[in-house]
Structure formats: C-alpha cells, structure tokens
C-alpha cells in the first residue's frame, strides 16, 4: 500500500477531525457549564447554516454581513432555548433534560424542513478548490481553514473558562444547589452557555456549509460531535480537540484500508466502534474528569 496515500489521507483526516471538534466543542461547552449532554448541537449547526443563508440569499446581504448577523441571531436563539425549554427543568433528573434536547433536535430539523425544504444550498466562502501542497502531499484548502478556525476556537474557549464568568459556569456544572447558595444565577449561567454554544455552532455551520452545502445532513454532524466529545471526555475542550484529530485520522485510514474490503461505509462503522468502545472501556473519555472519590 502506498505510504504517501496513507499519510495524505490521515493528514486530511486530521483536518476534517478538527472540524468535527468544532461541533464537539459546542457539546462540551454546555456540558462543562451545566452538566447537560446536548443532543441538539447538530440541529443547531444546521439551523445556523439556514439562518446565514436566509440573511445572504433571501435578504441579499453579503456574507461578511450575513455571518455576524447569523452569530447574533443564534446567540439569541441559544438564550431563548434555555428560557423556553430548559429553565423549568433546572434541578430535575438529567434524563428529562436529555430527552428535552432530543426534542429540540427533532423540532429544529422538522421546522427547518418546513421552512426551507430539503434541497441542498451552497454556502460559498470563496475558498479555492485548488489543493495546498505540503511536499508531495495534497491538502484540502477548505479543511485546512476549518482546522485553523477550530484551533483558534479551542484557544478562545480555554481562555474563557479561566475568566471569572467561566469559573462560575464550571461551578454551576459541579453543583446547581451549591451555586444557588452562593448567589450564582444558575439560570443565567445556563442561558449563557447555550448562547455561546450556539455561536460555536454558527461557526461550525459556516465551515461545514462551505464544504458540503447547507441541508438536513448538517444535523448528522451530531453523531460525529457526540463521538468526539465522548472520546475526549465530555467536559474537556482540549480532549475534544485531540479526540477530533484522532477520530479524523482513524476515519481517513479506514476509508483507504477498509473501504475496498467492505465496499464503503467504513467511516461510520469506525465512528460507531470508537463511541461504543470508549463508553465500554473508558467512560470518562481520554481527558474527562473523574468523579472525585476520596479514600
């Protein structure tokens, strides 16, 4: 087998993986600040894609205006989701909240299907199709840009969680009641985490939309996002970054090694295997927090 082909495939895989990380970071962000596993993140990405297209195509705004408008809109939608759907569930069993996020996922998908239909629409960022050359290896330019943005987002989020407000969000995630007892407005904290996560989803939507167009299939990024988030450890942003790279490389290699044997679809199989094995062997992921038990 061609070693160069393997290298090239794993390199591009790593870049795609970093773009998965971008979706995963939205999930991690909410988990890290309210202990809620958000199953609506994929649909949020899809919705953000449609929102940006609505600003650029239907209102005729240029993309550099439509994207910031999309970010603001999604921020407000994130706050709204907390206010309408989640506030009344604060302090309730996690399974109810989990089901609620699943309900939001289905609602957003069905809603966008009704409003915008099922056809795929392009979201051209103007990134050239011509590959980058790294020695003999060809690299997809769009993936490289996406990976760069993911790394930048990672740095921003890590810095954010060190600020006073970031510390407060982590405190909420640890113990709602204790947070209330010291005067933290848990509701506002959770709303903020959903809003920021919606912004991250918007950025993911821009990049993924430019790669594969905007349609319902963007919501399927949830599966990649969940796999990466779980593999990295649900509350570790750095874990999401590294797990994304790992999953991307494994996917890239699998598509070359396994696809000829299986006749395709090996990427999805590999994803499923990674998710299931993580949960079986290392439930808190590569870098997730253990629940502390003193001995």
């Amino acid at each position: 087998m061609d070693i160069l082909l393997l290298l090239e495939s794993s390199l591009n895989g790593a870049l795609v993986g970093l773009m998965y990380s971008l979706v995963a970071m939205g999930i991690v962000l909410i988990y890290k600040s309210s202990s809620v596993p958000n199953l609506a993140q994929g649909a949020m990405v899809m919705l953000a894609g449609y929102v940006i297209l609505a600003f650029s195509n239907q209102l005729g705004l240029p993309l550099w205006v439509a994207i910031p408008l999309g970010i603001v809109t999604m921020f407000i939608i994130g706050v709204g989701i907390e206010r309408v759907a989640l506030r009344r569930l604060a302090g309730r069993p996690i399974i109810m909240i989990l089901m609620m996020t699943l309900g939001i996922e289905i609602f957003l998908r069905a809603g966008s299907m009704t409003i915008w239909g099922g056809t795929s629409r392009p979201l051209p960022l103007g990134i050239s199709d011509a590959p980058l050359f790294l020695g003999p290896l060809l690299i997809n330019r769009a993936y490289a840009v996406g990976a760069g943005v993911a790394v930048a987002m990672f740095v921003l989020l890590v810095l954010f969680f060190r600020t006073r407000i970031g510390v407060v969000l982590r405190a909420i995630s640890d113990d709602y009641t204790a947070a209330w007892s010291v005067g933290i407005s848990v509701e506002r904290g959770v709303a903020l985490s959903w809003a920021i996560s919606a912004v991250v989803a918007t950025i993911a939507a821009v990049l993924w939309g430019s790669v594969q167009g905007v349609d319902q299939s963007l919501a399927l990024l949830l599966l990649k996002g969940v796999t990466v988030a779980v593999l990295g450890g649900l509350d570790s942003i750095g874990g999401a970054l590294l797990a994304g790279i790992l999953l991307g490389i494994v996917e890239g290699l699998a598509s070359i090694v396994l696809d000829p044997l299986l006749g395709g679809a090996s990427r999805e199989l590999v994803d499923a295997a990674m998710l299931i094995l993580t949960i079986m062997l290392r439930p808190h992921g590569l870098f997730g927090r253990h629940d502390i038990e003193r001995v």
């Binding site: 405190a171 995630s173 640890d174 113990d175 204790a178 502390i292």
Partner: peptide
Amino acid sequence: EGRRVFEHL
C-alpha cells in the same frame, strides 16, 4: 449540609 464544595474547581 454535606459541604457541597465545587469538587472540580
């Protein structure tokens, strides 16, 4: 009751 510190902080 039970201290309830933010354990991971």
